[in-house]
Simulated assay, not measured.
Amino acid sequence: MAVHHPATIVPTKLELLQAWVPHQTWTGNADTSVLTKLGSYRFDDPDGQVGMETHLLATADGQVLQVPLTYRGAPRAGADDSLITTMTHTTLGDRWIYDACHDPVYVSALVATIVTGGREADLYAATERGLVLEPTTTHVRGSGSSGGVPALTAPAVTHEGTTTTIDAGVRITLPRVVDAAATPGAGPTLSGTWPGQEVPCAVASVVVP
């Protein structure tokens, strides 16, 4: 379960994405001069400490970028290279925003979702009346059926073209420019839908040794 706290955020998520994404090599030839949000999906941190959200952005030339972020209430030790920015949140205080591909909490959640056949976290709004379930327009589902998650190691991230590979005891492939026609493969895959993408397409895959 993810909780959305009404607040003023500086910079906003879209502002930080618009500032950071155009400088990343994995955007390929996409025209990142204008980025608009199509949707996003979240995973749960079992310890309730790290926010995880993958943003789906439309580019000026109609391509779709996939950008996972983690939100932390304190700096992650030894992770300065993957720190994107800090954010002021009027409810939660200062937040440190990271490229999630380097964050072991996100990597563990992504692998678990894929291999166990999980899905995105439900999103609730914190209100004076308590938590209220928010409607979601972006959905993901893992294709696996395993009851267990393989042991993982510290993630090592590489980029080749518009694909990010995360080696963490398993090999995760994450297309950063999403191919709308990419159907889920035979192996463990995460597929997704969002506004404008009603047919599920592959957004991540895992190879387990």
Results as ranks from 00 to 15, higher is better:
174 L>Y: 04
91 T>M: 15
126 A>V: 12
181 A>G: 08
41 Y>K: 07
30 A>D: 12
140 V>I: 15
43 F>S: 02
64 V>C: 05
92 L>M: 10
56 L>R: 02
200 P>Y: 06
158 T>W: 07
174 L>C: 03
114 I>K: 00
105 V>F: 06
36 T>M: 07
39 G>A: 02
38 L>H: 01
18 Q>R: 06
101 C>S: 11
88 T>P: 04
178 V>N: 00
135 P>T: 05
65 L>T: 03
201 C>M: 13
100 A>F: 04
161 G>T: 07
58 A>P: 01
100 A>H: 02
101 C>W: 09
99 D>G: 02
112 A>W: 03
60 A>T: 04
21 V>F: 02
183 T>N: 08
50 V>H: 02
178 V>F: 03
133 L>M: 13
166 I>F: 00
156 A>W: 08
107 V>S: 00
23 H>L: 13
57 L>E: 02
190 L>R: 00
167 D>L: 09
35 L>I: 06
97 I>S: 01
194 W>G: 00
107 V>Y: 00
116 T>F: 05
163 T>N: 07
3 V>M: 10
73 G>C: 06
53 E>Y: 03
104 P>D: 12
2 A>S: 14
132 V>K: 10
133 L>I: 14
9 I>C: 09
3 V>D: 09
48 G>W: 11
78 G>S: 13
16 L>H: 10
117 G>A: 04
58 A>T: 06
207 V>P: 01
51 G>P: 02
81 D>M: 12
143 S>M: 10
124 Y>W: 14
99 D>E: 14
116 T>M: 09
103 D>V: 05
97 I>V: 15
157 V>P: 00
167 D>C: 08
47 D>R: 12
34 V>R: 14
58 A>N: 06
172 I>S: 01
126 A>C: 12
127 T>K: 11
108 S>F: 05
157 V>S: 03
6 P>T: 13
160 E>P: 02
41 Y>H: 14
95 R>L: 15
122 D>W: 12
11 P>D: 04
194 W>M: 02
121 A>P: 11
139 H>Y: 08
